[in-house]
Design a protein around this nucleic acid. Sequence first.
DNA 1: GTCCGGAAGTGGTACGTATGACCGGTCGGG
DNA 2: CCCGACCGGTCATACGTACCACTTCCGGAC
Lengths: 333, 333
Amino acid sequence: MPAVSRPTSKDVAHEAGVSQSTVSLVLGGKWNGRVSPATVRSVRSAAERLGYRPNQAARNLRLGTTRTVLLMVPTLSAPFFGPVYTGAARVASQHGFGVVVSTWPDDAAGPADGPFAAPQEAIDGILASSMAVEALGEFRGTPAVMLDSGPDGAIPTVDFGVADGMRAIAGHLTGLGHRRIGHVAAGVDQWTFHARAAALAAVVADLPGGVLTRADCAIDVTAAKDAATRLLTAADPPTALVCDDDLIAAGAYKAARALGLDIPSDLSVTGFDDVLLATALEPELTTVRLPAGELGAQGMTALLDLLAGHHPAPRVLPGELVVRGSTTTPRTG
Amino acid sequence: MPAVSRPTSKDVAHEAGVSQSTVSLVLGGKWNGRVSPATVRSVRSAAERLGYRPNQAARNLRLGTTRTVLLMVPTLSAPFFGPVYTGAARVASQHGFGVVVSTWPDDAAGPADGPFAAPQEAIDGILASSMAVEALGEFRGTPAVMLDSGPDGAIPTVDFGVADGMRAIAGHLTGLGHRRIGHVAAGVDQWTFHARAAALAAVVADLPGGVLTRADCAIDVTAAKDAATRLLTAADPPTALVCDDDLIAAGAYKAARALGLDIPSDLSVTGFDDVLLATALEPELTTVRLPAGELGAQGMTALLDLLAGHHPAPRVLPGELVVRGSTTTPRTG
DNA sequence: GTCCGGAAGTGGTACGTATGACCGGTCGGG
DNA sequence: CCCGACCGGTCATACGTACCACTTCCGGAC
């Protein structure tokens, strides 16, 4: 406990020889024509001299608002959500809002392994990843925006156009001549992955001679390697692997190398997200760029709209196909 | 603004037919022998029925403490600091503390590009990365712990043993027979990088025939590729590249590939940190594992100690050399 | 019958801020 | 000469909680 307590507005008032109300007026900027310039100067200099910082707890109590929102994401240890936080925090900061984060504890596999860490602060609103939807019940009544959760009637949403992204991937591969396609899928029960799988399946089903095989795995390099190996060692193996995530693609690379397959001449591989990893791999990964920072920023914008009383329209951020060196025409024969 | 205001302890008191004081007593757990079991049950059920959640702002004001600490790191978009946050948040949560984060805005290159986003909440303490040291002045008087900043007389610190780690790297390479070593250094004016450079230089200086060259770059794959290319295209190029960071090593891989050099047979490469990327590279990267999550956890532990009135001793977390496929004996001749 | 003391709970207040309601003085217009 | 408007501020209160000091009830001891 700090032995020296911080100065209050009353201390500033005493120092400046005015009342506490006047201090609040001046420092709150509400003094248009109510306070003389001389007094304003004197109050400001007194505050400066004492190093006065307003007590946020008292202000929050008085105003009934905290100008703070809660961001709920599964983890910040994985690559994707860091930029989401950054984008959200930037927009929040521009509007004078703070952000507190809540994640699954210990990078657990899911919310069943423990509750989100509850913030000690009161919050005005919630920006929640779809993977946090179960934990939202704790905060019934708090305005919320969901990220990447699919259209929802009750809660405003900001989504990626993952189906379009997956169609672009599939179109790219089939355009190159691939017919036997393997889907290394994230074994996670989330809208975004269901939407990707459905989009891919639809494209392959419409393709004469198209064959789609599938293996599920956790979003983890090692698990992905195993899943990809299963697909590649089956009879009549695919000539291209479509991975639900760049990390999964990294596992597919490992599987291919272990089997002596060259990427892309023996096997085309695609990812999803375009995290830093995608350009560090060799060859660089063909993937769909999901603007994670933009998701956070647009989500925060929607949430602030909601807090301001407007009901924001659902937004969809397009993914962009980024063709790099991991895809080419299949080996003939 | 939500039209329906949350119930207060007064509402609960009315519902249970007791006074607000009693509600506070019961829900605060301070009722040992002061309140009858029947009343306790009735208060608890009333709180449950109304969905009562204590107003944190009021509690913070009354108690003069927020049970919240501020974590200052340069960014959460880069791989390293996510686990730091996770470790810190886990320990904080176990002690009933919350965490708010402050980063450089927009992933700027440094604090000069703008202030850290100030949290809207009052905080009890600060856990700051060394890269945030400049911003610490705003919070003069708040208890703080520095991470990865080197020994400091005034502020408790938690550091990595980066010098030992670098000596392990250097010993590994020289033990393999390398004599001409290139240092792809992070061009960042921080204790941790100075310590790494000094440790490496000392080992090479003690080595008969040892030659150390150096190129600086930002912690960024593209910039690292350029820097590594400069070293590798010089006369009498190094047989091993020591990189200050795994991301820099990824750039070195790209430079080697562009020059037609095989890793490790033509060139050994080492990294630092052991982020996810290290095992996704091919071949997997020899590096020093810095336990980022442990840094956050130990730092938070030290900070909570400090808040409890104990002055924590400086702590040093050892780095561990992880030998993978990117290093071998230099090509003879 | 009086007094004591513990059990069970209540009243009142303070934390620091923001703000609506006041208030004394001056000045110009009617 | 009086009244209202306006300037430049102050007073008092409320936000919701935690906790100290106090009261009331009641069973027993003397």
